[in-house]
Design a protein around this nucleic acid. Sequence first.
DNA 1: GACAATACAGACAGATCGGTCTATTGTCAA
DNA 2: TTGACAATAGACCGATCTGTCTGTATTGTC
Lengths: 192, 192
Amino acid sequence: MPQKARKRAKTSEIGVRDRLLDAADRLFYREGVRAVGIDRVLAEADAAKASLYQHFGCKDQLVASYLERRTVDARANIEAYLADTPPSQRALKFFDWVVEWAESKDFRGCPLQHTVSELTDAAHPARAIAHGQREWFAERFREWTTAAGVKDPKATARALVVLFDGAVAGSEVDGPQRASDARWMAKKLLAG
Amino acid sequence: MPQKARKRAKTSEIGVRDRLLDAADRLFYREGVRAVGIDRVLAEADAAKASLYQHFGCKDQLVASYLERRTVDARANIEAYLADTPPSQRALKFFDWVVEWAESKDFRGCPLQHTVSELTDAAHPARAIAHGQREWFAERFREWTTAAGVKDPKATARALVVLFDGAVAGSEVDGPQRASDARWMAKKLLAG
DNA sequence: GACAATACAGACAGATCGGTCTATTGTCAA
DNA sequence: TTGACAATAGACCGATCTGTCTGTATTGTC
């Protein structure tokens, strides 16, 4: 019975909920949430359909949970990346992080942007998560530009949001050069 | 016979091919190319399924034709918008156009970005169209920054691409303020 | 060993998808 | 008037989608 061995190995390693989230993350990010069906996620996670609906209720909730985990991880990731950088230089250092992200093998743009543009329904739970993450970014940029002591911290922070969006969206189509271009301009902006 | 009146009215006004393209444009741009099925397009265009397959062959080709027309229209639109502006000031004036676009009622981000992120297949005809349009933008930016006489026209042009992408992607989620933010930064960039 | 909880496999339903096909209708030119 | 042509309506096909359901196997606890 192949199930026996497989099941034992899996349940002792990672719970089925995390396996489903891992699989959803890989597939949804790579191909989009509409292009990937439930069955693909189940096969990738090596899980049963009942487990998915037990843990998440419906596909939309799985999508929301996938984005939720992405944002939590991204925040932790960024904060760790900037921990050793003095606050006055974090705005620019953040764009180093963006460049590294854009250069990473599996980079394919912003999962929040993608999902929001795929799911038009304004009441979809994914939209609230995307909105929350953008608020977080806006606040961090205001912190960083204030700490940097630039002339107009609020306007500069808004400009950095544009640079960030442009770096991510541009790198998706043109490659990581766009992220470097954004960093180049961020440097000019923060210096002047 | 309702068909009689309807048919006569329609065929004398706009050909069925253009009606299909108009319908596809509205629906694909508003909801995405995967979210909208053939039947929705047919109902919106008040056309028969056979007409769609007669003129476009398959859905992918309809998508490509929709994007093709979008790019042709956008180029003409932009060139007309900038016709009365001296070359040296076109780079900045272009961001006025972006602001107006972002403020328009039906603005919902960049159709090319959306479609490319929805259709992962690298061989899809839509990707070639998107690539061509980005080339066109890159060349225009180089022209305009050269005419503006800035210090480093090529780097500045690359930066403007980032600002443009950021303006469009940001305005989709946060509203047209992002386009104004991009213009603000473009002005600084072109002045310094 | 009995039991509840969890996860498995997969049939099934109902809807929708892209695409093909037949049959009908209106238009226009010979 | 006839015949070619373009457009219509819509049945139909096989595939795929989300979600439900039945039944079985494994695990940990009493």
